[in-house]
């Protein structure tokens, strides 16, 4: 079990020693159960930190913002950022390190284990509690969560209310860290891609109909892109030329840009957006599931990424985020790689 007091002690120590400029963790929000990201600079503020099964966010995304902010500063603080990460979040860090987007020195990693269970799915939990207002959720010694509602404490089985990704997670503990709290327990998984079963059993036409319906819903708010730690490109192909964000893009370079996709959120354009995103995440997505969680229209985006994750594993024996020194999926070639798709 992660002892919250230990977590506070560790973070306080590195803040006091001025090894990090600030720490990103979780704190209680003002709106119910779900915590909010906490940015802590003062050692005394570590008391605000919490750690419970509702700490769903992948905080590594903030490193993307941090890098941009730092690039603009004239005399940037070169110290690392302290970051509290779960197993999945740590794999995202590995991909960012692998792609040299961040340096290992840029981040001080405080790893926490998910106590052999995982984190909670807010929607599943609400359904389970049938409208009762939940005040608190905690890990229990067993594979249970302890929930506190107006009626008091109850222990419920974690299995039914875990986030989908946790049900398919093999390592509920960080693979890279500077300090680690909790236990390392490998999980036995019969099928790490169980969520794909239903959709893979559909015929081609049925699948197409399914996705067409899903993409029809999309309003292209780009929340999935904004939350994704891997979507850190300066410019995105789906943005229009005028929206180009790279500051010193010349007019000539802008004239070379291609309008791959129309702005309007219609099915044909939405499909291109989602497929481009999925393909660009092949071998990079570490399944933190944040894209799906933030989607206001409940599009099962995670299934697309999961499918590519499965293909990468089965065809090329590749898993994203396990090692910052491995060569990325797209740029690695082995003689044994299957090539039966080449005519």
């Amino acid at each position: 079990m992660v002892n919250l007091e230990d977590l506070k002690k560790e973070t306080k120590k590195i803040l006091e020693e001025e090894r990090v400029k600030y720490i990103i963790g979780y704190k209680r929000g003002s709106n119910g159960l779900m915590p909010v990201p906490a940015f802590i600079k003062n050692p005394e503020d570590v008391e605000k930190l919490i750690w419970d099964p509702a700490c769903v966010y992948n905080l590594s995304r903030f490193l993307v913002d941090e890098k941009r902010r730092k690039a603009k500063e004239k005399k940037p603080d070169e110290r690392a950022v302290g970051l509290i990460v779960k197993g999945c979040d740590s794999r995202a860090l590995n991909v960012l390190l692998q792609e040299k987007f961040i340096n290992r020195d840029d981040v001080y990693i405080i790893g926490v284990s998910c106590e052999n269970t995982g984190i909670v799915d807010e929607k599943k939990l609400a359904k389970k509690l049938k409208g009762k207002k939940i005040l608190k959720i905690e890990y229990s010694e067993k594979d249970n969560f302890v929930t506190t509602t107006e009626d008091g404490k109850t222990e419920i089985s974690a299995q039914g209310i875990l986030a989908e990704r946790c049900l398919e997670c093999r390592a509920g503990f960080p693979v890279i860290y500077d300090v680690f709290l909790g236990e390392k327990a490998k999980r036995k998984l019969d099928n790490p891609c169980k969520s794909l079963e239903n959709i893979e059993n559909l015929s081609g036409e049925e699948r197409w109909a399914f996705w067409k319906e899903q993409f029809d819903k999309c309003i292209r708010c780009y929340a999935c892109r904004s939350i994704c730690p891997m979507c850190y490109c300066e410019e995105c192909v789906v943005d229009t030329i005028n929206y180009a964000v790279a500051t010193d893009t010349t007019a000539e370079e802008k004239a070379q840009r291609i309008k791959w996709i129309e702005k309007s959120p219609v099915a044909s354009e939405n499909i291109v957006y989602h497929l481009v995103r999925a393909i660009h995440l092949a071998g990079r997505c570490i399944d933190c599931g944040e894209c799906e969680r933030v989607c206001p229209l409940d599009i099962p985006i995670r299934l697309l990424n999961k499918k590519l994750e499965k293909e990468a594993r089965e065809l090329f024996g590749y898993e994203a985020g396990l090692d910052p020194d491995q060569v990325s999926l797209i740029s690695s070639f082995k003689d044994e790689d299957p090539d039966d798709f080449i005519i």
């Binding site: 792609e99 987007f101 490109c233 010193d248 893009t249 990325s328 740029s331 690695s332």
Partner: peptide
């Protein structure tokens, strides 16, 4: 190379 867009991920170098 368009240096504005390059993030130095090294994928092209490997490939």
């Amino acid at each position: 190379v368009n240096v504005n867009l390059c993030t130095g991920c090294e994928m092209c170098v490997h490939v």
